[in-house]
Simulated assay, not measured.
Amino acid sequence: MENVLAVLNVGDFAQAFSKMGMFPVFDLAYYIVSILYLKYEPGSVEVSRRSPVASWLCAMLYCFGSYILADILLGSSPIDYFQHNSHILLASAVWYLIFYCPLNLFYKCVAFLPVKLVLVALKEVVRTRKIAAGVHHAHHAYHHGFFIMVIVGYVKGSGVALISNFEQLLRGVWRPETNEILNMSFPTKASLYGAILFTMQEAHWLPVSKSTLILVFTLFMATIKVVMTARHSHGSPFTLIESWICHLLFGSPLAGSEEDHHHASSPATPSSPLKTKEELSEGARKRKAKKAE
């Protein structure tokens, strides 16, 4: 693998890409997309009018929930990341502009599909870097704790989704059917698979350098997320493989037949767990905006 990449002269580019700083451009995109999805959530706009403090806390969980959960798992203070004042101020500025900008101008700009696609791609750069950093951090704390490395990397990549039920409590909403463990969305699944890959690389079981793996996984995540966002797709590229493996190992029915049966039995149910929480909320918010017009 390394020989092929050397011939293609990818190594130098991958090395430079892996050392590229995330602040402020990439982190800004991450905060914008995260808080954009928060605004799609039911009751989030009402909470921002009724209790700006609760709205701000929800926004901080969306931006830094993965750091908070990873710090708890590794025995650090859950507010440790809040010492980075520049990140907190930048995320707070994004929260204010998305919820309180006059005429909703900032929200309309970042929600414009071409702009949103660019932001989504940049967000996946940050996600991949967070997964790799989580695995590396866990490796220093637990040299042979491979499962711990996978868990911490997984949490770093999808911690926001994993604590979404707690965030719902701050908004006065309780939707247990959106539990990410029960109904894993594509980013959550991809974070788990990515954490496994980076753990294998950290343990030298994968004949690829970390910089190359970061580049390849980033390209995969950014491409899939951009395509899914552009097509408003609710599917996942892992569905067929997962269905076959689950059917083979656990005797589970194929996902396709389950989905067909679900749609046949309850076609009018808008809150099907087959769709991700973000997609359902975005659709509900757009329908509400159309009615208001």
Rank of each mutant, 00 (worst) to 15 (best):
A203V: 01
D260F: 08
D27S: 14
A222G: 03
F166A: 14
L38R: 01
T269I: 02
W244N: 04
L170P: 07
E259Y: 10
C246P: 00
L280F: 01
G235F: 04
L162G: 05
A289Y: 01
L103W: 11
E180C: 06
L38M: 14
G172C: 09
S243Q: 05
Y30R: 09
G194P: 02
W205F: 13
I32R: 10
S236D: 15
G157E: 08
L90R: 04
K19G: 09
M200C: 13
S55K: 05
F198A: 07
R171K: 12
L192A: 07
Y100G: 02
C101D: 13
S77I: 02
K39W: 02
S158P: 01
M1A: 14
I245D: 00
D12C: 04
L73T: 08
S236H: 03
R129Q: 10
L206D: 08
V94Q: 09
I32S: 07
F146K: 08
A93W: 14
L249I: 10
F17R: 14
Y40E: 12
V94R: 08
F23A: 11
V126Y: 00
P237Q: 11
S158F: 01
F220N: 09
M221I: 03
G235E: 11
M22Y: 01
M200E: 02
H144W: 10
F17L: 12
H143D: 07
I32N: 05
A111N: 15
W95A: 09
H204D: 13
L192E: 01
P24R: 06
H234N: 15
D27T: 08
R127K: 09
V152L: 10
A132K: 05
L38G: 06
P52M: 09
V126D: 00
I241P: 02
L240N: 04
A230E: 10
S44C: 07
G172L: 07
S44E: 05
S92C: 09
D260N: 11
V173C: 05
A133W: 06
S236T: 15
L215H: 04
P253H: 10
A6P: 01
G75Y: 12
V152G: 04
Y193S: 01
Y142I: 03
V152N: 03
L28G: 14
N9D: 15
S48W: 03
T229I: 00
A141C: 13
D27K: 14
C101R: 03
R127M: 11
A230Y: 14
K19A: 13
W244S: 04
V150G: 00
F146S: 08
C58R: 08
V160D: 10
G11T: 14
R50V: 01
A29N: 06
T178S: 13
Q83E: 10
Y40K: 01
L215P: 09
L215T: 08
F82N: 01
C246G: 04
L213H: 08
L69V: 11
L113C: 02
E180H: 06
A133S: 14
E258R: 12
L280I: 11
E202L: 00
Y40D: 15
D27Q: 15
F186M: 12
Y96K: 12
F13P: 03
S266H: 13
I181Q: 02
I196H: 01
C63A: 14
G159M: 14
P52S: 05
L192K: 00
A190R: 02
V208M: 15
Y107H: 11
